[in-house]
Amino acid sequence: MVKTLRIDDQDVSAGTDDTILQVAQDNAIFIPTLCNLEGLKPVGACRLCLVEVEGYRGLAPACVTRVEEGMQIYTQSERLQTYRRMILEMLFVEGNHVCAVCVSNGTCELQALAQRLGMDHSHLEYRNPAKSVDVSHYRFGVDHNRCILCARCVRVCDEIEGAHTWDLLGRGIQSQVITDLNRPWGESKTCTSCGKCVQVCPTGALFKKSKAVAEMEKEHEFLPYLNTIREVRSNG
């Protein structure tokens, strides 16, 4: 069955199970995302895809909200733009994001969004937290200074590789991604060293150790491949 609705005064049609984000993307309407990755289960963690829906009291995360018949959705209001910039600012001040010396400089999704959404400075004070770097794995490294806790690594490792090496530890600002039961990555018994987590990481938090500054380009052809695997699994 097909549903019809309006996004930013544009009439669109959608499948029954579609999310607002999917419909927007199908119709080339830009909604910013960071934690979302096609092929992985959406979790609504980053809140960048919040949209206004007429009749809703609060804002709705587009990645996990299913469309309804006759919905009126707004994606570009002044309020949303302000919130999006504020979310980015919070991501920046809670970590230590130094683009100039980052392996992902120029290919980073966080950096690209900050540019696109016009975040030219932070209204909030930088917290400069003391965070660690784990390069004990023979091929890969994790720099927690650059992690935005999108949990793409956790999901890809669990849902597609089936290893569930990655997980989240702690609450609030103390949270961090961990390997196994918070053992150094190099000592992980479950990691298959497949590298999917590194490919899906939106920032330079997960990287190949052989890469120097601005050299960590993600292999984009890798992502459709993830989708294919997932489809095969769910149909099988």
């Binding site: 010396v101 392996v103 770097v133 490294g141 720099d143 150790k209 052989s210 120097a212 500054v213 601005a214």
Partner: peptide, 13 residues
Amino acid sequence: GRPFREMPSLMAR
């Protein structure tokens, strides 16, 4: 505490 491969760019600053 930084990975050594960052050093050239870090030091250039």
